[in-house]
Simulated assay, not measured.
Amino acid sequence: MERNYTIVTEFIILGFQNLQELHNLLFIVFLILYILTITGNVIILSVVRIDRQLHTPMYFFLSNLSILEITYTSVVVPKMLSLFLTGNNVISFTACMTQLLLFFFLGASECFLLAVMAYDRYLAICDPLHYASIMHSKVCIQLAVASWMLGFLTTFIPIILISRLSFCGPNVINHFFCDAPPILKLSCSDTHMTDIVDLICSSTVIVCSFALILVSYYNIMVTILKMTTAKGKRKALSTCASHLTSVVIFYAPGLFLYVRPEASSAFDSNKVVSLLNTIVSPVLNPMIYSLRNQEVKATLRKLIRRKLRSLDGQQR
């Protein structure tokens, strides 16, 4: 019986090797974006926690999204910043597999959570009379937990298969983190079955969750078009605008990167597209939900005024 073995004990992450002269600049830019991501999502979490008026299903799911964004970007960005700053582009086999597992687990969980958020908007707009009775706190928790669990379950099998492959040749990953396609390219085992399982799992997660979002928004648009007042239409659209923007920003790169065969053939372009998922989307989401959301903006203004009054009182 043939036994899988691993000769390679560490990988070298190539990163943006053709931009070495810009590494210091890239470090500063990505560090600022990372800080903005953490800060923005922490603010969202704090605002939702403090203001009781925001203790609703929509903001509960938004809090989960913020937690996902913080952890999702933290899986990739710190190692990339270390590469820019120190030039240390070595990662152990175990650390690489762990990063791969966490990246896909959190990414898949976000797909399912965005679908849940679309379902929440569907109920709020299309069935407002039964919304409160359907989306009570227990159901919200169950849907959020289901999103995280499905994210893990749909990721676990392909990552286990990848970790059991043999790596006995080149160990240079042509990416800025441990992503599945470039890792599979390095294996000296037969990766045909692993490729198929990886493609099926990735496609199932992205396509099925995206299809649920499309169905939800199709029904939402039908309901909005039937509304008789312009004010009602504007209010309904405004509650969906932030979520729709997040969906477009998150799913467009995901569909390009993982829902196609031979995804490993264009790594340089994949790096650029991956930046949208790992850096751009997490930093934009807090801005999207705060700048376009009147309730969040009102709470932020209230908290800032309260803080200013407190500081003024201390100075006196």
Rank of each mutant, 00 (worst) to 15 (best):
Ile162Val: 12
Asn174Lys: 13
Phe152Asp: 09
Pro158Lys: 08
Ser147Trp: 11
Ile160Ala: 01
Leu150Ala: 07
Ile159Leu: 09
Gly169Arg: 10
Pro181His: 14
Cys188His: 14
Phe177Cys: 12
Phe177Ile: 11
Cys178Arg: 11
Thr155Ser: 05
Leu161Thr: 03
Phe167Ser: 04
Phe152His: 06
Ser166His: 06
Pro170Gly: 07
Ala180Val: 11
Phe176Ala: 14
Ile157Asn: 07
Cys168Ile: 08
Ser166Asn: 05
Ile159Phe: 07
Ile159Ala: 03
Asn174Gln: 11
Ile160Cys: 02
Cys168His: 10
Cys188Tyr: 06
Leu161Arg: 14
Ile173Trp: 14
Asn174Ala: 12
Cys188Arg: 12
Leu186Glu: 09
Leu153Pro: 01
Ser166Ala: 11
Pro170Ser: 13
Pro181Ala: 12
Thr154Cys: 09
Ile162Gln: 05
Leu153Ile: 03
Ser187Lys: 00
Ser187Met: 03
Leu186Asn: 05
Val172Trp: 11
Phe177Pro: 13
Thr155Asp: 02
Pro158Asp: 09
Ile159Met: 10
Ser166Ile: 13
Pro181Tyr: 01
Cys168Ala: 13
Phe167Ala: 04
Phe167Tyr: 10
Gly169Cys: 13
Arg164Met: 03
Ile173Ala: 08
Thr154Phe: 11
Leu165Ala: 11
Asp179Lys: 00
Gly151Val: 03
Leu153Met: 07
Ile183Val: 03
Asn174Tyr: 07
Met149Asn: 10
Leu153Tyr: 08
Met149Gly: 05
Pro158Trp: 03
Ser187His: 02
Ile183Cys: 05
Ser166Phe: 10
Asp179Glu: 07
Ser163Phe: 01
Val172Leu: 15
Ser147Lys: 09
Phe177Tyr: 12
Lys185Ser: 01
Lys185Asn: 13
Ile157Thr: 01
Pro182Phe: 04
Ser163Gln: 06
Ile173Pro: 06
Arg164Pro: 02
Val172Cys: 12
Ile162Tyr: 02
Asn174Arg: 15
Ile157Gly: 04
Ile160Tyr: 07
His175Arg: 13
Val172Thr: 08
Phe176Trp: 15
Ala180Trp: 05
Trp148Ser: 00
Ser147Cys: 05
Ala180Thr: 04
Met149Cys: 02
Cys168Asn: 15
Phe156Val: 00
Pro182Leu: 04
Leu186Arg: 02
Ala180Asn: 06
Ser166Glu: 13
Ile162Gly: 04
Ser166Val: 14
Arg164Ile: 03
Asn174Leu: 09
Cys168Trp: 10
Cys168Met: 13
Trp148Gln: 09
Ser163Met: 04
Phe156Gly: 03
